[in-house]
Simulated scan of single mutants.
Amino acid sequence: MAVVEVRDLVKRFDGGRVPAIDRVSLAAAAGEYLVLLGPSGCGKTTLLRTIAGLEQPTSGDVLIGGHVVTGLPPRARQIAMVFQSYALYPHKTVLANIVFPLRAVGMAREERERKARWAAELLGLELLLDRKPRQLSGGERQRVALARALVRDPQVFLLDEPLSNLDAKLRASARDELKRFQQEVGTTTIYVTHDQAEAMGLGDRIAVLNAGQVHQAGPPVEVYDDPADTFVATFLGSPPMNLIPHDGKLVGFRPEHLLPVENVPAGEGVTMPLAVERLEYLSGDRHVYGTVSRIGERTRVVARLPATVDTAIATGETHEFAVPGARLRFFDTQSGQRSEPVRLDGG
């Protein structure tokens, strides 16, 4: 059963001609970790805020627990939201911040402190309860915000880029904590980010948005390996998918699948000479930038070679590369949508 569902949701601001959310239908199942991924301005935060009741849709419906909640205020939706800024009370201790939503609903002191200490222990905050937010690191503040949300026993957690204020190293460890936390409590979670590493690492499913529309929703490996269109293909991946025009189509392949020909079994790949223009070394990988002319017109591409591929490649040389046929993806040139394969000479 879907715990959260939006049906044909549209949201316009100030009578704008271009909607921030454009006929979106999407659902999150019980216990699912659904990530809304997309570039800045794509509508993902507006969609989250509309689910929360902080924005009212122009048309369409929001359902939580099978009930239409469109028009209801946030407090009536059984949701808890964690914001990018954490929104902690600076003059209150960690314990007082966690307890605050329980005091607001009149819960007895003994019960609210029991729940607050349970949440604090789950999130590793039990030694910080007497501190003020200014005495905490960014990761600790994020955990306090999660604990404050957890004590409300929500049906749904809504997280709006909660890691964006952390440095890269802390983001990686905080991502692990978020995943562990969600697995332990089992609450349906909808998470907004523009960071594809966060999306791939956290989500049971990813919904990729652009210009107010969902382009594809599915498990991370499916969205990455079988993108529904050229937007998803080029938004996901670092470097993104290579696209080469051929016979009225676009042929796509991931940089890690473009390999020196000697690393592809004979007869299993489509070969192409790559004129090497630049080499880049990143975290044990080599990124090889150049142009190919094997399929259609001359096109710039990038290959990502792991350390296990020790083929000698130098700038200014042309080296024969190949892509396994099973790794090729095909898209319509006009619409950008995934299309049926076409025959490529040599593979």
Rank of each mutant, 00 (worst) to 15 (best):
T46P: 06
L47V: 04
L48E: 15
L48C: 14
R49P: 09
I51R: 05
I51M: 15
I51C: 11
L54H: 12
L54M: 10
L54R: 04
E55G: 01
E55F: 06
E55N: 14
Q56V: 03
Q56Y: 05
P57Y: 08
T58H: 06
S59T: 09
S59D: 11
G60R: 02
L63A: 08
L63I: 01
L63H: 12
I64L: 07
I64G: 02
I64A: 07
G65N: 08
G65S: 10
H67M: 10
V68W: 00
V69P: 01
G71R: 11
G71V: 07
G71Q: 07
P73A: 10
P73S: 15
P73F: 06
R75Y: 14
R77I: 02
Q78E: 15
Q78L: 04
I79M: 09
A80Y: 03
A80W: 12
M81T: 10
V82H: 07
V82Q: 08
F83R: 08
F83D: 05
S85R: 09
S85E: 15
Y86N: 02
A87V: 04
L88N: 11
L88R: 08
L88Q: 13
Y89M: 11
K92I: 00
K92Y: 15
L95Y: 10
A96S: 13
F100D: 07
P101T: 01
L102M: 11
R103L: 11
G106A: 11
G106Y: 05
R109N: 06
R109E: 14
E110D: 05
E111L: 10
E113I: 09
E113M: 00
